[in-house]
Design a protein around this nucleic acid. Structure first.
Lengths: 127, 127
DNA sequence: CCTAATTTGCGAATGATTTGCAAAATCATT
DNA sequence: AATGATTTTGCAAATCATTCGCAAATTAGG
């Protein structure tokens, strides 16, 4: 069995994600850490992000420039509301999906198994 | 002003997308064309896909391996139902989003501007 | 068929991500 | 707090999808 060590570099990478609460690429996280004189190699940033995503503690998305970006999020099923202003991401539950599942079944003969949603707009703080 | 020529390679790339109706990467399209002894360079496949996506005639998604894949779709706002069995993609309209927008506003103070949804399940033919 | 404009194909360049490996850090036990 | 087994780190090199430069080929229109 493979153990997982709690190391300083890993904690520093997650700390950035927890503090920022917005989608960040490995390079951005690396840059943020350097600014605060915290040296974590880019490789380790990548490895830590994969680890967090694997544990479901972070979720990934590819931005328009083709870079993979990550946010912290809880492990239950949910969706993200991304603010166009500050970039902050809020977790959103999905009750509304039941009616969509029914419509897919009756109009398309499609049996829904899973779904992904993402919302973009303006958060309370930015309004 | 920039004119757009209707060329044989472009037509061949779109023909593959129209025939397959599922998410395909540039490399996959290139391979499919080669099998039918149709030689279109990989660069041209990429360029044509960008063109179609730009015109809204195809939509892109990044798969788990990190490759960008494309499907044909209509230009109006809609979502995709992807079959886990055959991979075929169906366009789905979104009426259900109104209630979601309202919930986001009242529960999160979030003003919805745009959204993305993707559905996964089993299509009529595969059941 | 001519000419100008656009596109193609090739190979080289790019840029994000991964990987190999030796050195450093972590953990559970003395 | 020292030991030893295991995991992680950092670096540089390798990978791999995608982009780019440019000469040759194709297209649109008169």
């Amino acid at each position: 069995m493979r153990a997982t060590y709690a190391t300083k570099p890993r904690e520093q990478v997650s700390a950035v994600l927890r503090r920022e609460k917005r989608y960040l690429s490995a390079a951005e996280i690396h840059a943020i850490l350097r600014k605060s004189r915290t040296n974590v190699s880019l490789s380790t940033v990548y490895r830590t992000l994969d680890l967090l995503a694997g544990k479901g503690q972070a979720s990934a998305r590819v931005d328009e420039r083709g870079e993979t970006t990550f946010v912290v999020c809880d492990q239950s099923h949910h969706h993200h509301a991304v603010c166009n202003g500050c970039g902050k991401v809020e977790d959103v539950s999905c009750e509304a999906i039941e009616s969509v599942a029914h419509a897919l079944r009756s109009h398309h003969g499609f049996k829904l198994a899973d779904h992904e949603m993402e919302f973009f707009g303006t958060c309370g703080a930015c309004r």
